[in-house]
Design a protein around this nucleic acid. Structure first.
Lengths: 339, 339
DNA sequence: TTGTAGGCGTTATCAC
DNA sequence: GTGATAACGCCTACAA
């Protein structure tokens, strides 16, 4: 690779000082039109490109915001990345998305994080990391997305996990369901989408005057370890093979719900004729499935916009106290619960 | 924000030189165990973090490979990002995914590109950019993904667009379809997935001894401007309202196929009972849909691995001549064409 | 309006 | 095994 073209090279070629080139490149005022043109010509001629590393080293800014998500191939995160990219662009920032790999998370995220200091800020959407491990980064602008205890004082946008699950569960009850199955993650005490959506589900049952299972075996609870279509499908099989088919299923995410519907279909159980199904997230596909999927629809636009706003505010004023916010939502009622 | 902790600070605290700290941080040999421990202690104590910009400025490497995709919220690109991230990690690189925004592309991509020189290399999966605009970046390692003329001499991995579309079209014919509709992008001469998958489709028709439409009006061709579920749905409506229902539909992508199936369902047309449907890409959802979707399944793992391999080889030896490769594929036969 | 000096945090090189 | 020195390419501050 040939030697890199630097500002000095351009300056020499144009017969000016490096500083003048810098001024031209950055659109700063105080450069005569003649010189400006001459410099631009030489930039073209030499094929000069700004060195981002040098600029950042000097200015401390990279103009890039990192977005860390656990899995890129889940529609929810794809849509999130897409929204955030658009919002950030309007604010003059680029977004670089990184996949942290869910599950093990902790370590990986931490590494990711430490390295990501090349970004001006980070929007972190992770499920499993212990936030206390973020130590030493207090001074780095971070916005947390998604559920968790937040002992860090960082800005945090939560999904309407409890309220959303509660509302959609009530909806299932209003549709006449009495025995409502729950398909979701493992029972844990830690605050997570697992615990919160479950909590909302139980609150919804209570609202509807339905029995809330307490301890011991719960024949209507189907635990999955991961939030995947495959795990949902397995749960669908189990549900279909239950001694008594439930009236409805609430799945912890649309991705899982898709798997559940598939699993039910594998066993000849039809949705919504034999059984209602509802999910959570309103991923883009949900509206187009057959049957289209009833789901809790958090306002993704709002979330993206707010995440960027909070991050920019924090970058501006690192001493701000952390915000705790919650995305608004609706329940999108579709064919999978009778339309 | 407090002053950043630098290597010098750590060095002073540990009573060694900055160079030694650098050696420890980078795991270079030739540091006594005692000193190493002392340095690590002080790194911990001071909360020191490497400055990526400075390292890159000095070493010329960032350890980051860029992946530019047109749309993050299309499952195909989510899956691609996910695969590539895993492969790259094994090779010691991180992946930063950027959304370029399809459609207008050209400019945006070019900008994206020029900025992305902070990466050690770039995997570019774009649809619309005129590659000649990449001028001035010949010395920058790039691997192109997807369809196009490739006048640049850069490494290029193509999808099996022609062969795949051909094979799946033959499959539809083997299932007894005579009148096969095509749902895809606009007619263009430029080489693109639009032109290539269409070409493969027509070849498949010919293989099966079916009539290949020539010029003029083709009642079995439904053009979409974008590759979206919504456009697919509209095409589904049109198909359902045709004077005579076709026997089968080949949709240019799974995303479009999903929309088509939805649009057909809106009009009471059932898949596969009334009509067979096949797609292209084998996105993760396709297997879980009801009915599961028959589709051309390029080997995504292979593509990801090969893309990273080619890029690394190019980074190693910039003078390599460009490779032209084509991903292997199978036709995943599922319920939407009768299983 | 343009130029000069110096340093951002790291590492390659070479001496000790 | 460890340290001194000099860049990497740019930008802030100030001088001309």
């Amino acid at each position: 690779m040939l030697r890199t073209v630097t500002m000095s090279d351009v300056a020499r070629a144009a017969g000016v000082s490096p500083m003048t080139v810098s001024n031209v490149v950055n659109g700063r005022p105080g450069v005569s039109e003649a010189v400006r043109r001459r410099v631009l010509e030489q930039i073209e001629a030499t094929g000069y490109r700004m060195n981002a590393a040098a600029r950042q080293l000097r200015s401390g800014r990279s103009g890039v915001i990192g977005l860390a998500v656990p899995e890129l191939d889940r529609p929810y995160f794809g849509a999130l990345g897409s929204h955030i990219t658009r919002v950030a662009k309007d604010a003059g920032y680029r977004i670089a998305v990184e996949e942290t790999g869910a599950g093990e998370a902790g370590e990986i995220d931490a590494i990711q994080l430490s390295q990501s200091l090349q970004y001006d800020g980070l929007i972190l959407s992770s499920v499993n990391m212990d936030l206390r491990k973020i130590g030493g980064v207090q001074s780095f602008p971070i916005v947390l997305l998604g559920e968790r205890d937040n002992p860090t004082g960082a800005d945090h946008i939560a999904l309407p996990n409890v309220e959303g699950a509660r509302a959609v569960t009530r909806h299932l009850a209003e549709r006449g369901a009495r025995r409502i199955a729950y398909v979701g993650g493992p029972s844990t005490e830690a605050v997570s989408i697992f615990s919160l959506r479950r909590e909302g589900f139980e609150a919804g049952l209570a609202d509807a005057g339905l029995e809330v299972p307490r301890g011991g075996e719960d024949p209507l609870r189907f635990e999955t370890q991961l939030i995947t279509m495959e795990e949902g499908r397995r749960a669908g099989w189990q549900i279909a093979e239950s001694p008594q088919l439930p009236d409805a299923v609430f799945a912890i995410t649309d991705t899982v719900a898709l798997g559940v519907v598939r699993g039910l279909a594998d066993r000849g159980v039809r949705v919504p004729e034999d059984l209602l199904v509802a999910g959570f997230d309103d991923v883009p596909e949900s509206e187009y499935l057959v049957p289209s999927l009833t789901t809790v629809a958090p306002d993704h636009e709002w979330t993206a916009r707010r995440a960027v706003e909070l991050l920019l505010a924090r970058m501006e004023k690192p001493s701000r106290t952390g915000n705790e916010e919650r995305a608004p939502f609706t329940v999108a009622i579709r064919e999978s619960t009778g339309g």
